[in-house]
Design a protein around this nucleic acid. Structure first.
Lengths: 257, 257
DNA sequence: CGAATAGTGTCTCTCAGACAATATTGC
DNA sequence: GCAATATTGTCTGAGAGACACTATTCG
């Protein structure tokens, strides 16, 4: 904010009455998504106070008077879910402010979408209230508090779209991961099976998406050839993009024998 | 919001004190974009009150206590710019809420991005203050009030991305338009020249993007063959997408003689 | 006719999806 | 060997960009 205060402005500000505008409260909510056991899941908390006491809700809370929105979201994330911002992807999801979405008063919620790897102890909330990972497909929209069903739906839709043209899918993986693990992220978020061979070719071919570590993973309990390990590259946009199959498929791509 | 009020909740709400949370004000701002004479332009107003009196700003205003955010944005759009929502595309752009972005008090702004055709009299603002179309490239970021430079930048970037995968570019055109007019929209928003022949093939080939009217336009002042008229189709997603050229072009697509 | 715009067609290269085939590992 | 996963390669068709060519209008 540059320096363009003059005397009349100073006087104006001194006389300014904040109650001249309708009072709002502002909250941040966190849509924390992860992939556990091949299933896209969201972290939900049980509300311990009214309104919606006892119901499931997204973690979140009121923004303090001098608190930046992004900082407030990261704060809630770290305090209530135990996820460190450094391992996660965080982005603002929009603003939800229907009158009546909170029975207490007029509240505008600014939800944040977070992607995190499946961490060992993400349930270590400071709020001492019950938290749990719930598969997104198992969430009953009518049982969520406030308008959190709509917020969650917006977050999941955004996640599905983002995986197409940005490399954020790696945020669901640990620092080093295999192509197979990355593929299971895409399959879980999109809810469709993908051809491992084409997926391998596309991800390793996309500019700056993945950087080979040079080592191999140890095979899982079912055996199989060890896979090469990768880290995320420095690309911010995926080129070529990873297009979702099935969606708006016009016609006869490829052959079908 | 279903019926899960019980007695203790009713009591809780009756005793609730709204001043328990930091007081915020909420505004909606309108990033109204159009293409005039081949140039992407934004509608700006001159502020007639403090703060930032006399400086350029996006049109907007405080949200009333019982006003829906979307409705508030459409209201400001129609009142301050004279654009009817029916001819425009309106979408929420996010939330901007840095402490200090408004010197009066803590204000969270929810900007809305609007695409409208180049209307004959869009300057008929009810607020009686001076409004003008300014080419986006000619906007001096430091001269805008509040954080409106960042809001405008976010809006323009969103517009550029949306033209790729959604058919919203037609919102910049009148009800009936030619492929050439649509192409000039893409060229203005993206800031790059496009091959008219490839553009024609791609737009008419994209599923549900355009519906031919069956009539031809009258040629412009420079003559030329009359062009077929089209209306927007019912597609919500563009398939195949209209990819921006130049951006992350890896390598040698096509040949170069 | 020349300038300007509209529209069609052709060519080549990239990329997507369908699979075949091979490589490694655990059991 | 067999099951399971990883990786490479091959084929076909869709689609992008470069650009030749034709069509139609105005002056």
């Amino acid at each position: 904010m540059p320096s363009h205060r003059d005397e009349s402005e100073t006087a104006f500000l001194r006389a300014y009455d904040p109650s001249a505008h309708p009072p709002f409260a502002v909250t941040v909510d966190v849509v924390l998504l992860t992939v556990r056991e091949g299933v896209l899941s969201v972290l939900l908390v049980e509300r311990e106070t009214h309104p919606f006491r006892g119901q499931l809700a997204l973690p979140g809370g009121f923004v303090q008077a001098d608190e930046d929105l992004d900082a407030a979201a990261v704060h809630r994330l770290e305090q209530e879910t135990g996820v460190r911002r450094s391992v996660a992807h965080v982005e603002q999801l929009g603003a939800f402010g229907d009158p009546g979405r909170d029975p207490r008063m007029r509240v505008v919620s600014v939800p944040y979408l977070v992607f995190a790897p499946d961490l060992p102890a993400p349930t270590a909330g400071a709020g001492a209230r019950w938290v749990a990972w719930v598969p997104v497909r198992a969430v009953e929209p009518d049982r969520l508090a406030f308008d959190h069903a709509a917020v969650l739906a917006a977050g999941v839709e955004r996640a599905r779209a983002k995986l197409e043209y940005s490399p954020v899918a790696t945020a669901f993986c640990r620092e080093e991961f295999t192509i197979g693990e990355l593929r299971r992220v895409y399959e879980a978020v999109w809810g469709v099976p993908l051809d491992p061979r084409n997926f391998h070719r596309k991800t390793t071919g996309a500019d700056g998406f993945l950087v080979p570590v040079g080592r191999d993973s140890i095979p899982g309990p079912e055996g199989g050839r060890p896979a090469a390990l990768y880290q995320r590259g420095d690309a911010t946009l995926l080129h070529p993009a990873m297009l979702r199959p099935g969606a708006p498929d016009t016609g006869t791509a490829g052959r079908r024998r």
